[in-house]
């Protein structure tokens, strides 16, 4: 009896320290986001406060000036936001379709050059992506998909190479028993039918994972996106446009507006991510184990 209480006590003390540690970690993790949010409420209007860098976190007066600035038409923020959303949406749809197709073919079918293709793509993936930016830019330019056409251009480039990202999805398909396919095939179903009516309905988690990852990518893309937009303001995505507020000298005192814009980008994505987190975990865990 005495031993049990001492165990309990020990555990309680252990738990206490664990909680302290967890709270500490949480504070560290949340602090930057808290700061970002607070700064976004500091007005850039010199009559109220100041929009550049300051040495305090909590604004002296809370104001929505920055958000007003983003949405009242003075900038193309809505346009940039919409551009990014369109890119993310289409990339997400097409990438998922292509990844599913490639994964199915590589997982279920044995054709000539299959292993060669997988090795070849693996090797291609070892080249740094930035290397080919200039070449991709001129390729897109040849078909008129730069500057004013940057949005479809970015979708095209992103979708075109998406087949190479089949690993996680193929790993998932590999875990679906082949016997199911075989049974259906004996009953006379074609490969296409098996794929569409059997494999896909069983792959909801991996479809959501693939779509989610593809959807989140374009929100961060500023290097190649700024290359393709090439100074055409209306074709920017949020990352390219807002990056300028931080690094280009013409934009003095835009810091709080950057924070507000960042919050507007982060909030919906975070909510979406939180809702689909379960599938994300399944995807990354599967991918990690399969490699």
């Amino acid at each position: 009896m005495a031993r049990q209480t001492s165990m309990k006590k020990k555990r309680a003390v252990g738990n206490f320290f664990s909680y302290v540690l967890l709270i500490l970690i949480s504070l560290i993790w949340l602090f930057p986001f808290f700061g970002l949010l607070m700064q976004s409420f500091r007005s850039y209007d010199p009559a109220v406060e100041y929009g550049g860098m300051v040495d305090y976190i909590i604004p002296h007066t809370f104001s929505l000036d920055n958000y007003r600035f983003l949405f009242d038409g003075g900038t193309n923020y809505l346009r940039w936001y919409l551009n990014t959303f369109i890119i993310a949406l289409f990339v997400s749809i097409f990438n998922t379709i292509i990844v599913l197709c490639v994964s199915y073919a590589l997982s279920r079918m044995r054709f000539k050059g299959r292993t060669f293709l997988m090795r070849f793509w693996l090797i291609l993936g070892m080249f740094p992506g930035f290397l080919t930016m200039i070449c991709l830019y001129f390729l897109l330019k040849q078909v008129g998909l730069t500057q004013a056409g940057a949005v479809p251009g970015l979708i095209l480039v992103s979708v075109a190479s998406s087949g190479m990202g089949y690993y996680v999805c193929k790993g998932y398909f590999d875990t679906i028993p082949k016997a199911l396919d075989e049974a259906a095939r004996i009953d006379g179903a074609s490969r296409a039918r098996v794929f569409l009516t059997m494999t896909l309905p069983m792959s909801k988690p991996i479809i959501i994972y693939t779509a989610l990852v593809a959807f989140m990518g374009p929100w961060c893309d500023y290097v190649f996106a700024s290359y393709v937009a090439f100074g055409h303001d209306k074709s920017y995505n949020v990352a390219v446009a807002m990056q300028r507020w931080m690094v280009v000298g013409d934009y003095q005192g835009y810091f709080t507006r950057f924070c507000a814009g960042g919050v507007c980008v982060a909030v919906p994505i975070t909510i979406l991510f939180m809702c689909l987190q379960k599938y994300y975990v399944e995807g990354v865990t599967g991918g990690a184990v399969k490699g």
């Binding site: 010199p46 100041y50 550049g52 860098m53 300051v54 000298g249 003095q252 005192g253 835009y254 810091f255």
Partner: peptide, 24 residues
């Protein structure tokens, strides 16, 4: 760049930042 500067009493900068410095 005056917009990024914090808590300063002196800054060597050009005319283009005059407005920002004045605000601060």
């Amino acid at each position: 760049s005056a917009g990024d500067a914090v808590n300063y009493a002196a800054i060597i900068d050009g005319t283009w930042d005059a407005g920002t410095v004045k605000d601060v």
